[in-house]
């Protein structure tokens, strides 16, 4: 059974079809890149997978069942924005996660935070944007999930932090889990991808294994992308 399946998924906003008849299967144990231009529908698709949007048509199935409390226990989502309660401290946020997520490894999170020099008594509102993003990454990676969905984890982040993020993703890799990385900064992450899904104008343009694509096109995925979706 596949990990996550989208069947004829569509989403309309007012008069625009953000997603049209998307059919997708995410396998286990793979690092998958969701690549597309800004506005292609990546974030819409991801929000639908996380039950933050209601489909206009079609369904999302996680391990064969509709999205619900069980699927949310197994999906760890890192959105682009900061979603933490600003009045809470880092320590309180950790306890919040530990309270609701049964597979949250609080010790691991504390270790990672210590590495990042993040004090546990710091209030979220006092942290810089970069620190907040790192904190959110740590929180997501400290959960033992079956699917990690990271939306633009490298955007607006310095190169050292980018390396840190990629290392963390690789260190966290488990054979029964998958990672879905959505980004438009393809060159930075393509070397760790197993598979790629190209999305354009709300439809799936291509699904392929990363190395197969490189062999077939004789170039980097970044180059292929530029060629194919030239403005």
């Amino acid at each position: 059974m596949s990990l996550l399946e989208c069947k004829h998924l569509s989403k309309r906003f007012g008069n625009t079809m953000a997603l049209q008849d998307v059919n997708l299967t995410l396998p286990r144990g793979r690092i998958i890149g969701l690549l597309g231009k800004n506005g292609a529908g990546k974030t819409t698709l991801i929000k639908l997978m996380n039950d933050l949007l209601t489909p206009t048509g079609g369904t999302v199935l996680f391990e064969g069942a509709p999205l619900g409390a069980e699927s949310k226990q197994a999906i760890a989502y890192l959105p682009e924005r900061t979603y933490l309660e600003r009045s809470m401290t880092v320590a309180q946020t950790l306890r919040y996660f530990a309270t609701f997520y049964t597979s949250f490894d609080q010790e691991k999170a504390q270790r990672l935070l210590a590495d990042l020099d993040l004090r546990e008594d710091a209030r979220i509102s006092t942290l810089s944007k970069g620190m907040q993003e790192k904190l959110q990454l740590v929180l997501v990676m400290s959960r033992k999930a079956k699917l990690y969905i990271l939306d633009e984890p490298l955007g607006g982040v310095d190169p050292a932090t980018r390396d840190y993020i990629l290392d963390t993703i690789l260190q966290n890799f488990a054979e029964d889990a998958s990672v879905l990385l959505s980004t438009h900064l393809i060159a930075d992450i393509e070397r760790i991808l197993d598979d790629v899904i190209l999305i354009d104008k709300g439809q799936i343009a291509e699904e392929a294994s990363a190395d197969e694509l490189r062999t077939r096109e004789g170039c980097a995925i970044d180059d292929y992308f530029r060629r194919r979706f030239k403005c």
């Binding site: 060159a187 070397r191 990363a210 190395d211 980097a220 180059d223």
Partner: peptide, 8 residues
């Protein structure tokens, strides 16, 4: 590595 050839 360079991204142009299969990584493996």
């Amino acid at each position: 590595f360079d991204n142009e050839r299969p990584i493996y």
